[in-house]
Amino acid sequence: MEIEALENSSHYRLGKHYYDMNRYEQAKEHFQQALAEAPTNTTLLYMLSYCEFELDNYEEAYELIVDTLEKGLITEYVYQLLGLILRAQKKWYEAEQAMLQALSINPQEPGIIASYAYLMYETGHLKKAKLLMDEARRIEPENQTVLHYQFYMNLIDDNKKQQRDTLEKYIQVADDELPKLLKIGEEAYFRDDYKTAKEALVQAFLLDPTNERVKELLDAIDRETHIVFLPNRLVEKLGGTLGTWAISIGIIMLLSYFAPAALGYYLVFIIIFSIYTWTSPLIYKIVCKVRSH
């Protein structure tokens, strides 16, 4: 009866519509009003908890998911969400317990195995994480959640070949364009292919200009490729600060032997160059500020 009432509730329908659009703020508002009509509906509580989780309100999300469990909706997905909330709260042990509960209900759910694998990876249990991920991939190699976690594990491992393989598979199965473009951008960014990264991230930005991660990466690319940081990039190419100093000392010795008259000029250049590379972040900030005005 309550389910029927829920289906007929315009607030529920609107909330569900926004929920499917990943607009959790608006979905939350409508779900809260629907909850007033059906206060014990566990599906509604679960979805509201998910909204709070996506909005980074972990305390509220936790209370709602516990309420969902107390009211009798005990499924692997409820425990998985509990695990994700606890992971976000950095309560690693409790998060693992929740994931294990989820797996005890359904040990064959690849999405849950993959999220458990990522939890293990985050907490440093690399071998266990790898075994779990292998198992998730064995059950369903083209599961979107599995490929999502696999991609980030490969990214952290800096395993470029596997990164590309996972990304290719992810692009084939994912239905939302935004995470696809974001992953393409991230993969290219971390192998220093800023051109490709920027192209993908601009496309992602077209889809969602409120996405913080996309903005952060675009800003980082802007910074990395800015002319102000050209000397810093040169230092990096020469093997970092130590390499640059070694080369400088070499040049000083050569100059003092072959062209002592030029030594003074070179020393002045080195001092200016060093000061510039130290102060370039500040110069960049000033340039950005001036440009935005």
């Binding site: 519509h17 499917d20 659009m21 364009e177 889809l207």
Partner: peptide, 15 residues
């Protein structure tokens, strides 16, 4: 935006 949500971002077939 809610009525004509970008289809490349929507996973809902109904919408």
């Amino acid at each position: 935006d809610a009525l004509g949500y970008n289809r490349s971002r929507s996973s809902s077939d109904t919408m």
